[in-house]
Computed example of a mutant assay.
Amino acid sequence: MKIKLLILAILCSIYLAACTGNEQSTKNLQPIEINEMISFSEQRPNTLQVLANQEDILSITNSINSAKKLDGKVDMADPHYHLKVGKSNYYLWVNQDHTATIMNVNDTNTIYRIYAAEKFISTIQQ
C-alpha cells in the first residue's frame, strides 16, 4: 500500500512540474514580426504585422520547430513573407496544398516543410 502511494505521489509531482514549466515558458515569448515580401531583398512597404498574442506565438513557434527538412537543391521563387521569431529570421512561402515552406535566412541552402499548416497560415495572414 505504501509503495502505491509513493508511486502515485511521484507521478503527481512529475505531472505538476511539467504543467508549471509549460506555463512559465509561455510567459516570456517574444512577439513575432511578419512582413510581406516583394523579393528576397525587398519588403513590401507598410505591411509590418506584430503578433503579440501568446497562443499565436506558441502556435507559430511549434509549427516552425516541427517542420520537416526537405532534401535536394534549393531554387526558390521570391518569398511571400519574412518572419522574425526571437533572434531567428525566416523566409516563408504559402503553398496551395495547405502547407508552408520556410527557410532560415542564414541557411539559404536548406528548406523545411510545415505540413497541415492551415492554422499557421491563417495566423500569419490575419
Rank of each mutant, 00 (worst) to 15 (best):
A17D: 01
L16T: 11
L83F: 13
K84Y: 02
Y90F: 14
P79W: 05
T123N: 00
N35H: 14
L5V: 04
P45K: 03
Q54T: 15
Q43N: 12
A9G: 12
E23V: 05
A67P: 00
T101G: 02
K119Y: 13
P45M: 08
E55I: 12
D56V: 09
Y15V: 03
L48S: 09
M37S: 01
E42Y: 04
N53E: 15
I124F: 00
I10L: 12
V105H: 05
H82K: 14
V85K: 02
Y90M: 03
K73M: 10
G86F: 06
H80V: 03
M1C: 02
N46A: 15
S88H: 11
D78F: 05
A17W: 06
E23H: 10
L48D: 07
M37G: 06
V85E: 05
Q24N: 02
M103L: 08
I38V: 10
Y115S: 14
T99V: 14
L6V: 10
N109G: 09
E36W: 00
N28R: 12
N89G: 02
V50D: 00
D78R: 10
E33H: 12
P45D: 05
M1S: 12
Q54Y: 06
M76N: 13
H82R: 15
V85H: 05
S13V: 07
N109Q: 09
S25G: 03
V94P: 03
H80D: 15
I124D: 00
Q125A: 10
I7V: 06
K73I: 10
L58A: 15
N22C: 04
M1L: 08
I124A: 01
A67I: 08
L5G: 14
N95P: 00
A18V: 10
G86Q: 02
S13R: 03
E33Q: 11
T20H: 09
R113M: 15
L6E: 07
I34T: 03
R44F: 00
I124G: 04
A77Q: 14
D107S: 15
A77S: 11
I64K: 09
E118L: 11
